[in-house]
Nucleic acid binder design. Structure first.
Lengths: 155, 155
DNA sequence: GAAGATTGATTCGTCAATCTTC
DNA sequence: GAAGATTGACGAATCAATCTTC
């Protein structure tokens, strides 16, 4: 079944998605910079690294949908702040395995609470837990579909 | 009523929102650069300017949730490409009114079709029209709430 | 003095080139 | 030769400073 266009233009919905995400990001980012002097982008990377317990640079890039070079630089910043460390890959000397340090995990606990506060207010406070659950279901569906369709777009 | 946390952590949902939006943005942006040699950010600004029929720099900034300086530079690029023009504000000589040119409106028609194609495939094709409608409802609610809560966040 | 806008310096991510290792 | 990662140059947005007009 090929997608038909019964629902009217979809650009406005996408515009809303972008604006909502931007506004939420900015709110959380401002809160983190203010309270913990760190950017949300860095905390997000730290979060991913921490919860996987160790990953390669390109795995971080794939998870965040950023480039490998960008991921390398994010890690540079986190290493400089002693929040993660590069450890040698056990079988492949081209790779490093990036792991959260104790300081990184500690900072993550505090920053996660700050982010949770902002998001709970602005997402759950507006949509309610039921609305958040509906949103999450839709996003899960999209996320699953996006993973494989992100390849092979351009010739 | 203060927000309570019955739904579990909300950070993962936000992370999904960011990743889905990023992936969709990148797909549409790549398509536009490839077919029309213009960035999605510029098309988005052109879209907003066009559909309002004329607005000030700070109005564009407020709509897109970007800074005034950033909006000024987006307009610089669009002016350089002859897609919008700055016209004198009728009553306030500090301001300009930014309007889409004929070339801008023409380009917008073509690029909108390209964006619609990408989004129809990746949003509607995955969620269906009903799913898109549900997503749009949730985003509308969030957008309405965000407008007024974006002020007065930091001391 | 405040509001609207522009400009220059900085920051962050992408892209292309490069280096090392497979 | 290909894969993993890093580095420098570039593009785009933020922030602070500045200029003009209210």
């Amino acid at each position: 079944m090929v997608s038909a266009d019964f629902g009217g233009p979809i650009y406005p919905t996408f515009g809303r998605l972008v604006r909502v995400q931007t506004a939420l990001w900015r709110a959380a980012d401002a809160q983190l910079r203010h309270r913990h002097d760190i950017a949300l982008a860095d905390v997000t990377a730290l979060q991913v690294v921490s919860e996987t317990g160790g990953m390669r640079v390109q795995d971080l890039a794939a998870t965040l949908h950023i480039t490998v070079g960008g991921a390398s630089k994010v890690i540079d910043r986190l290493v400089a702040s002693d929040l993660v460390q590069r450890t040698p890959h056990p079988t492949d000397r081209r790779s490093s395995v990036v792991k959260a340090t104790a300081a990184g995990r500690k900072l993550l606990q505090m920053t996660s609470a700050a982010v949770e506060d902002v998001l709970t207010e602005r997402l759950e406070g507006v949509l309610g837990t039921e609305g958040v659950a509906r949103l999450d279901n839709l996003l899960l569906t999209l996320e699953g579909a996006i993973e494989y369709s992100s390849e092979g777009t351009l010739p």
